[in-house]
Design a protein around this nucleic acid. Structure first.
Length: 442
RNA sequence: GACCCUAUCGUCCAGUGGUCCAGGACACUCCCCUUUCACGGGAGUAACACGGGUUCGAAUCCCGUUAGGGUCGCCA
């Protein structure tokens, strides 16, 4: 009864990895890890498209990005291969013969059909419970096309038998199909695996999530700059819960707590907003090294050169609290790495356009030149004393200064920003800004 | 249409007959912190789909209705 736990994720290479599929993979992986079992990746590529190579690669990349490494299959091989259905023809033929010998199949216009026993079938599902299907009115299913290729239901069952799959954990869209599958298991006189049908992931409006929908593809999270651990955490929360109101939960704990019968039976709508929030949480709690590692690809893509790692880390500390996606990092830090930053017109108009703003920058630059110890607290004291002397509020200096050194109205704490930028950059940027906007008569 | 699954705040989840005039999180509103933007802290709005049962007692059990989703392919 207690066979070794072997589960599989069996995607077909469609050119993208759907979040629903990713969650199915995740739950299979969690189940395998919880039980010390094996997680198999099988590619259901019965229909051979030209894009297959890249489509399969996209699946590998998506799963690996999420940290869902498989034990067998895919590009790894294993004792029950091959793991691509197109390469398993001989096996399917062997199983077809078994059915033929029993007279359970017949030809119909060149296709091969399986003769249904038309008896009620009971699916004892780990998640949905006992479900009974009346099969008496169902048409016989096709298992092979006239061109010799195999139909999903047949190949799927044969593979699960051959690969010794103990638990089939898949989307609820397969619940009805399971009755057909069980008829096949019976015909092969093979005990069916345990079944667990996961509720589906829907769009925010309750409609079915399809390829086009925002956030439907795992690739979109990679591109936007999500942390994989955050997306994975979010996916865990869709249909499963640690039961103690925690939102952020380490994957090791999820593995320890994971249990099929604690899975919700209700479809879940994908809340991109919450996923984004969770990502922000992860960004703030991960190590600075990790933060840097995940930022780097985006900095490179934005052509931002960061030769000085120590400086880069200081910069990242400043923006870490303010971003929710790694994709946002470049726009937040670019002026730390180049003097050729652009000035946001609205920010310029607001902060530098005020009467006397440039004068105040002159005073500020003068005061900053006298500061011996270029640190945030000294800069703050310096700025405040200049403001006091002028009889103005600190803000009258802060805002122009920010725009002058960064070109924008939004950014990290001014004093810390100045400290990290360093004396030379700050002073030259102040001067440059004064010169430029005096000429332009802002 | 037939069959199957589901039904707690807008969304995700907690709740498995009394401790629930229902708890947490996201989002939203307000306040505090901060002369930027965020973070953080605090407060608030907001739900047991409906109708019947069962029971001393129901969000929790049963039936029906309605709604949503799924399956009925020589797609997977």
């Amino acid at each position: 009864m207690s066979r070794p736990v072997r589960v599989r994720f069996a995607p077909s290479p469609t050119g993208y990895l759907h979040v629903g599929g990713a969650r199915t993979a995740l739950f299979n992986w969690l189940f395998a890890r919880h039980h010390g079992g094996v997680f198999v990746l099988r590619i259901e590529d019965t229909d051979k498209s030209r894009e297959k190579e890249t489509a399969v690669q996209i699946i590998y990349d998506g799963l690996r990005w999420l940290g869902l490494e498989w034990d067998e299959g895919g590009d790894k091989g294993g004792p029950f291969g091959p793991y691509h259905q197109t390469e398993r023809n001989d096996i399917y033929h062997r199983y077809l013969k078994v059915l033929q010998r029993q007279g359970l199949v017949y030809e119909d216009e060149g296709a091969v059909r399986f003769r249904s026993p038309r008896r009620p079938v009971v699916v004892d599902d780990e998640i949905c419970g006992r479900v009974e299907f009346d099969r008496s009115l169902e048409p016989d299913m096709t298992i092979r096309r006239p061109d010799g290729s195999w139909i999903f239901h047949f190949a799927n069952v044969v593979d699960d038998i051959e690969m010794r799959i103990s638990h089939v954990i898949r989307g609820e869209d397969h619940l009805s199909n399971t009755a057909k599958h069980i008829e096949l298991y019976q015909a092969f006189e093979h005990e069916p695996p345990r079944f667990a049908h996961l509720p589906l992931i829907l769009n925010q409006d309750g409609s079915k999530m399809s390829k086009r929908d925002e956030g439907a593809s795992v690739g979109s999270y990679i591109e936007a700059g999500y942390a994989p651990e955050a997306v994975r955490n979010y996916l865990c929360l869709l249909g499963w819960s640690p039961k103690d109101n925690r939102e952020m939960i380490p994957i090791e704990e999820v593995i320890a707590l994971f249990d099929l019968n604690k899975i919700n039976r209700r479809n879940a709508a994908f809340d991109l907003n919450k996923c984004l929030w969770l990502n922000g949480q992860y960004m703030r709690q991960m190590s600075l090294e990790r933060f840097c590692e995940l930022s780097l690809p985006f900095l490179r893509a934005a052509n931002i050169k960061t030769p000085d790692t120590a400086y880069l880390l200081q910069v990242l500390v400043l923006v870490r609290e303010r971003v929710k996606l790694f994709g946002e990092v470049p726009e937040w830090v670019n002026y730390f790495f180049t003097d050729h930053y652009s000035y946001d017109p609205a920010a310029v108009a607001k902060a530098l356009g005020k009467p006397g703003a440039l004068d105040r920058l002159v005073q500020l630059a003068e005061a900053f030149r006298q500061i011996p110890d270029w640190r945030a607290d000294a800069l703050e004291a310096g700025l405040k004393s200049v403001a006091a002397k002028a009889g103005l509020k600190a803000g009258e200096f802060i805002h122009p200064a920010r725009v002058a050194v960064s070109g924008r109205a939004i950014g990290p704490s001014l004093y810390h920003m100045l400290e990290v930028l360093g004396r030379d950059r700050v002073l030259s940027r102040l001067e440059r800004t004064i010169g430029r906007f005096s000429r332009e008569q802002v």
